[in-house]
Design a protein around this nucleic acid. Structure first.
Length: 499
RNA sequence: GUGGGAGUAGCUCAGCUGGUAGAGCGUCGGACUGUGGCUCCGAAUGUCGUGGGUUCAAAUCCCAUCUCCCACCCCA
């Protein structure tokens, strides 16, 4: 076994797990700019930040997102807490039944669970007889001591949980919150889709369901995108009715779909039964004509929903927001009612939605809170960044700011002392300073400065130390000047503020 | 979960129909012991994703597997 092979083996042992990635400088500067912009814009609309745990009880998501959705049924990272419960259980069981038996059972989970269950029933009896063992103790442990937890696949459920738990209905209504952070879904990665992905999330909870709230929320995202200079932004809106009119429409849709069942692909035939609305979303070329002819929900809204939808549109117009109505826009999550919207951007491949949102009036009540109106959106930050990067690429714009402003080239022990002092003061004044830790020849030091993209090199040698007049070199032009320390700070300060 | 494409140096890739590896860029050192970008010279880094098979011989052909990319399902 060669050394190289061993090294390689060692290195490939650890790698970022599928669908996760490292975000590195200078790209992270863009992430920060995006998040800072969000904070500024959202604050100007009266939103405050909420920071949430990244994991919650599984039941919260099952209830909020919908137990039947793919997200909950197969895409969540779910685990037991304490984590070793199951394995301890099986290990204990193995000691009682023997290794051979457990090996056999390992290939048949159903039987294994059945046996464990029987074992548990007997455990209570045996405990009464005074028989004790670690396994028995474990089996008799109250169920509440073991919880099923999940990494959050989205943020809305947690925000609602917090609203209830923190009694936010006592706050002035509505409560406007935003949050930024990672979400987790176990999906097959593709362009703009990761297993750990980031969302910028905003929610308006409580108060009325005035269409002005929905419209202003949309205005806020659009303003945010505009502030970032995001191009090719398109707003799609729709109303999917409420619990009065949607079920009727869904039945109507299903009936119509049954008539054309033969012309539908297998996916849509399945969706026809499970979630007919999703058929509208089909990308299959052969189904497009059929979908165009299907009844549209806008024509089947109840009076209240229709009035609400009309008013949202009027309010958007008042704000000068351009939108297109998209009857095929159906949100995937169970909790949405009435207004739904989605924003797409360019350069994103097939996952081109950067923001999705809508109203979810019933959710907080569903989670055990008081009846509460609510609306919100989630921005896919990874996709937003991707789109910004694509457009920067196509326009040939340089990426984020150079990192080093002043590179200190020093020679000699005395100069080093001065350099340390200078670095400290320059940094205190807010400059980004690179101070090489070991002596280098000036040629080498300037080469380093150049490679790091530094704007200036501060040259400190015996001459400078003796005279107190330091040499500042502007790398781009090669110009040099002699400056005292105070004049140096002054000079750089002026340069930075645009002279 | 399903389908397609791809894995060769840190990066981008070449290596045709089998004869145990190259370029450019980057990194480091030197020409250049108080001045960078240019140029020139030199160096380091690979059991060619991994395992198996065919063969005298495999980066190259076959099988399996892993990872990445793209798309479907689903969704931000």
């Amino acid at each position: 076994m060669s050394e190289g092979a061993a090294k390689k083996e060692e290195r490939r042992k650890f790698q970022a797990i599928r669908g996760t990635r490292d975000l590195l400088p200078p790209e992270t500067a863009l992430w920060n700019r995006v998040e800072e912009t969000a904070r500024e814009v959202f604050a100007s609309y009266g939103f405050g930040e909420i920071r949430l745990p990244v994991f919650e009880q599984t039941e919260l998501f099952a209830r909020a997102v919908g137990g039947e959705t793919d997200i909950v049924s197969k895409e969540m990272y779910t685990f037991q807490d304490p984590p070793e419960f199951t394995s301890r259980l099986i290990a204990g069981f193995a000691r009682e039944v023997g290794a051979e038996e457990i090996k056999r059972l390992a290939t048949n989970q159903a039987e294994l669970l059945q046996r464990l269950y029987e074992h548990k029933e007997r455990a209570a009896v045996r405990a009464k007889q005074g028989i004790r063992s670690p396994l028995l103790d474990l089996l008799l442990e109250p169920e509440e001591n073991v919880e099923s937890l999940s990494l959050r696949p989205e943020a809305t459920a947690s925000v609602c949980r917090a609203y209830i738990e923190e009694n936010m209905q006592q706050w002035p209504q509505p409560v406007k919150l935003y949050t930024v952070g990672p979400m987790f879904r176990r999906e097959r990665p593709q362009k703009g889709r990761y297993r750990q992905f980031y969302q910028i999330d905003a929610e308006v909870l409580g108060g009325s369901d005035a269409p002005g709230i929905d419209a202003e929320l949309i205005e806020m995202v659009m303003t945010f995108f505009e502030r970032l200079g995001l191009q090719g932004v398109q707003l799609h809106i729709n109303s999917i009715g409420d619990k009065n009119c949607r079920p009727k429409y869904v039945e109507l849709l299903r009936d119509e779909l049954r008539k054309v069942k033969d012309k539908l692909g297998p996916d849509s035939q399945r969706r026809m039964e499970t979630n007919p609305l999703r058929v509208l979303d089909s990308k299959l070329e052969s189904e497009q004509d059929i979908i165009e002819k299907l009844p549209r929900i806008a024509q089947h809204l109840c009076d209240a929903c229709r009035e609400n939808y009309d008013e949202v549109k009027r309010q958007l117009a008042l704000r000068g927001i351009v939108y297109s109505q998209n009857f095929r826009l159906v949100r995937g999550l169970d909790y949405y009612v009435r207004t739904t919207f989605e924003i797409t951007a360019k350069g994103l491949g097939s996952q081109n939605a950067v923001c999705g949102g809508g109203r979810y009036d019933g959710l907080i009540e569903l989670l055990g809170g008081p009846p509460t109106r609510a609306t919100g959106f989630a921005i896919g930050e990874d996709r937003l960044i991707l789109s910004l990067q694509e457009q920067a690429k196509s326009r040939g714009v340089a990426s984020e700011d150079p990192r080093v402003e002043v590179y200190i080239a020093w020679m000699g022990e005395k100069a080093y002392k001065t350099a340390i002092h200078a670095a400290k003061n320059l940094r205190a004044a807010g400059f980004s300073v690179e101070l090489p830790p070991v002596e280098q020849k000036f040629g080498k030091a300037l080469g380093q400065a150049d490679k790091l993209g530094a704007r200036y090199a501060l040259i400190l040698g015996d001459n400078e130390v003796a005279s107190g007049e330091w040499t500042l070199k502007t790398l781009a032009t090669g110009e040099q000047q002699k400056l005292s320390e105070s004049r140096l700070l002054d000079f750089l300060g002026k340069k930075r503020s645009g002279e």
